[in-house]
Design a binder for these strands. Structure first.
Length: 387
RNA sequence: GGGGGAGUGUCCGAGUGGUUAAAGGAGAUGCGCUGUAAACGCAUUGGCUCUGCCUACGCAGGUUCGAAUCCUGCCUCCCCCA
């Protein structure tokens, strides 16, 4: 029992979960995720891991893919109305979400539901749902209070969100719902909705929000400070090494369920990276990713697998000269101007040799077979398809 | 329905007829330092066939030698009143 509440911020109402767990029948534990972006990141996994704990303890996990609520937009933690994804995006995301969630949950034991099943309801039924609450009640939430104070808009649609999420709980008869701390209002609101439909209100448990790799803002894809669970091992390790030291203890606690080990921060961070990579890519992947990291970033070497790039299309009119900014621009998805600046700033290397700042053209014979490097971490292996 | 206000570069945000590719900040990127941490320093940050050219301040026109700055219409958004 004590294990199941580890790391939780709120477990409400007080004492209720303990009572529920004393019963002998497994609880129906609900988690809803709206497929608004394509990938699950480590921030999501904090709650998913908690869900998995319940699953291992023999409870029935219900994963709700919010394909309907994604069209509404969860106002949680938002200072502005969320852009709504298209149905196609939602559909695509829903598929990858489930796949990724099963890196953590046991597929066989998980009940997966889409909330469009029950939320695509008759207008009368929707009115019945709306009749269960008041505007004042819906506006209570902190997000809205802040927005109103700042004279920021609140979409009418957003107002409906808690009702819909609450109805999910009714539909699956949840005994307990998990979520991030930013979900507290929605989770608690679900209790009211269940009550209105004659069900016993669920317990709610909130988990901390993981800070992103910048160490400041919450981990989020749109902020670009996330580590995706499907990131390649090297990238995952690299991103984890780049988190601020201050964020490390939290990563240990929330992602690995342990304390940060004593010793030099650098060592602790490497261990963090190894363990997390190993979790998502299998034993051995962690150590391999670290080796890659050592070679490329510590020893400033070259990774063993780098994409190759054909220099032929960038030859000048005489076909003996390569226009370097063009080549770099295309190869690394930069504009020629950006590439030009990088050269000027000494950020471009060929086989480890910094390219002189005034170099704009290079004889093509001097390029094939060499490694072109931009900045510290971007590489291309050049070849000449016309040679 | 009435009244008021706003739309500027990745974001925030100056600028209200003339060195304005557009202040300042953030972010990002490069170099240095380094543990791909933090902190710090320097630099860059529209595009291109680059001593020049093109595009740019919601959209479309107009006034002017000259406009992001003035006028007209349109679009979008916000606030207040009802």
């Amino acid at each position: 029992m004590s294990d199941l509440t580890r790391n939780a911020v709120d477990v409400l109402p007080e004492g209720r979960l303990a009572e529920q767990l004393e019963g002998d029948k497994p609880l129906r534990v609900k988690l809803g995720i709206d497929p608004t972006t394509a990938d699950i990141h480590l921030g999501h996994t904090v709650v998913l891991e908690k869900l998995a704990e319940f699953q291992r303890a023999g409870h029935q996990v219900v994963l709700i893919v919010g394909d309907f609520t994604a069209q509404v937009g969860d106002p949680s933690g938002r200072s502005a109305t969320r852009p709504v994804p298209t149905p196609e995006e939602i559909e695509a995301n829903a598929a990858t979400y489930q796949e990724q969630a099963f890196k953590i949950l046991d597929r066989e034991k998980t009940e997966v539901r889409r909330n469009s099943e029950w939320l695509r309801m008759e207008p009368e039924a929707l009115l019945g749902l709306l009749a269960q609450t008041t505007v004042a009640r819906l506006l209570e939430r902190d997000d809205f209070q802040k927005r109103m104070a700042a004279a920021q808009p609140i979409a009418a649609l957003e107002l409906l969100y808690p009702l819909l999420q609450g109805y999910d709980s009714v539909a699956v008869e949840a005994d307990l719902e998990l979520g991030g701390t930013d979900q507290k209002f929605n989770l608690l609101f679900g209790r009211d909705v269940q009550g209105a439909y004659g069900q016993k209100p669920q317990s709610v448990m909130t988990m901390p929000i993981l800070v992103g790799t910048d160490g400041v803002q919450k981990m989020s894809k749109s902020l670009g400070n996330y580590v995706g669970v499907t990131d390649p091992p090297e990238e995952m390790f690299g991103k984890l090494m780049s988190i601020p030291d201050e964020a490390m203890a939290e990563y240990y606690r929330l992602l690995l369920g342990s304390e940060q080990p004593e010793g030099p921060p650098n060592e602790a961070k490497r261990e963090l990276g190894r363990r997390i990579v190993a979790r998502f890519h299998g034993e051995g992947a962690g150590a391999a990713a670290e080796e890659h990291f050592n070679r490329v970033f510590v020893q400033r070497g070259v990774p063993d697998e780098i994409p190759s790039w054909d220099i032929d299309p960038y030859a000048g009119s005489e076909r003996e000269i390569i226009l370097l900014p063009k080549l770099i621009g295309s190869g690394f998805e930069l504009s020629s101007s950006e590439a030009r600046r990088l050269i000027q700033q000494g950020g471009v290397k060929l086989d480890g040799e910094t390219v002189a700042s005034d170099t704009l053209e290079i004889p093509r014979g001097e390029l094939a077979g060499k490694v072109l490097q931009v900045g510290k971490r971007r590489f291309l292996s050049l070849f000449d398809s016309a040679a």
